[in-house]
Computed example of a mutant assay.
Amino acid sequence: MRRIVLWLSVSLDGFFEGVDGSIDWHLVDDELHSHMNAKLAVMGAFLEGRRTYELMEEYWPTADQDPAASGPTVEFARIWRGMPKVVYSRTSKSVGPNATLVRSVVREEVLALKASARGDLVVGGPDLATTFRRLGLIDEYRLYVHPVLLGQGRPWLTPEEAKTDLDLVETRTFGNGVVLLRHQVRTPTTHTIG
């Protein structure tokens, strides 16, 4: 069964980006980038909000044309261009190649996309993550925790009233100090008396 995976890099104190929107504190070296590429290459689609999509689209379509680009950078540029993308935005006028513009998140439509996808779907961006969480659409949380305390910035997830129970299914520490925390949403078990 396909899953919807929230995939984010966050600071140790829980921020997605700094006060000024910066992400220059991300420690993405070749080891981490190669790991991410291997996981992302087999996904079925990237699901993104407008801001995340625009940031990615600004750089990745031509990143492999830079003669100084590392091997993992060249590889991800190819992954980015080839991967289907769904962009959720009420304000965007258009999106680039291999992308579909959707005006709002409709639970049934997302579930239909999940059922027909060739691989897991990756959700990127904190606003979209909050919406997907509220609608009960996230199956897995994949957080790459960077060894930095930002002190302030934009939180990776806004508070919600509902509690979500998770099971830790993987951890991995990279040489640069980044730690992967992978949790799956716990599905309620049915107990029968018999």
Score class of each variant (00 low, 15 high):
52 T>F: 03
188 P>V: 08
64 D>Q: 06
55 L>K: 03
170 E>W: 05
114 K>N: 12
192 T>D: 06
103 R>H: 13
56 M>Y: 09
48 E>M: 15
45 A>Y: 05
76 F>C: 01
35 H>E: 14
145 V>H: 01
162 A>G: 08
96 G>V: 11
78 R>G: 11
5 V>L: 02
192 T>L: 13
124 G>E: 15
84 P>E: 12
83 M>W: 03
179 V>R: 03
66 D>Q: 07
51 R>H: 06
135 L>E: 15
101 L>M: 08
77 A>F: 01
108 E>W: 08
100 T>K: 13
41 A>P: 00
167 D>E: 15
133 R>G: 11
70 S>Q: 10
119 G>A: 08
117 A>I: 12
7 W>S: 13
65 Q>G: 12
63 A>C: 06
66 D>M: 05
41 A>G: 05
22 S>N: 07
176 N>L: 05
32 L>Y: 05
148 V>K: 05
36 M>G: 02
106 V>C: 09
66 D>V: 07
94 S>Q: 14
42 V>Y: 00
171 T>L: 05
194 G>S: 11
82 G>S: 06
179 V>T: 13
65 Q>L: 13
142 R>G: 04
107 R>V: 04
34 S>W: 02
1 M>R: 11
181 L>H: 11
125 G>Q: 02
136 G>C: 03
134 R>E: 15
177 G>F: 06
115 A>W: 05
178 V>H: 07
101 L>I: 06
63 A>S: 10
163 K>F: 10
157 L>E: 07
159 P>A: 14
87 V>N: 09
73 T>P: 00
82 G>V: 01
38 A>F: 02
24 D>M: 03
28 V>T: 15
71 G>K: 06
150 L>A: 12
183 H>C: 12
185 V>C: 01
77 A>R: 02
73 T>Y: 00
40 L>M: 14
104 S>N: 10
16 F>A: 02
114 K>C: 11
71 G>R: 10
174 F>N: 08
159 P>D: 15
161 E>G: 15
133 R>S: 15
180 L>P: 04
87 V>L: 09
55 L>T: 04
33 H>K: 10
34 S>C: 04
193 I>D: 08
133 R>I: 09
17 E>Y: 01
11 S>K: 04
174 F>P: 01
189 T>D: 05
112 A>C: 09
100 T>G: 01
101 L>N: 08
33 H>P: 00
59 Y>V: 10
49 G>N: 05
182 R>G: 02
39 K>S: 13
35 H>S: 13
126 P>E: 13
123 V>K: 11
9 S>E: 14
70 S>N: 07
72 P>D: 12
138 I>A: 06
180 L>K: 06
42 V>N: 09
3 R>Q: 13
38 A>K: 14
91 T>N: 09
192 T>H: 10
51 R>T: 14
166 L>N: 09
3 R>C: 02
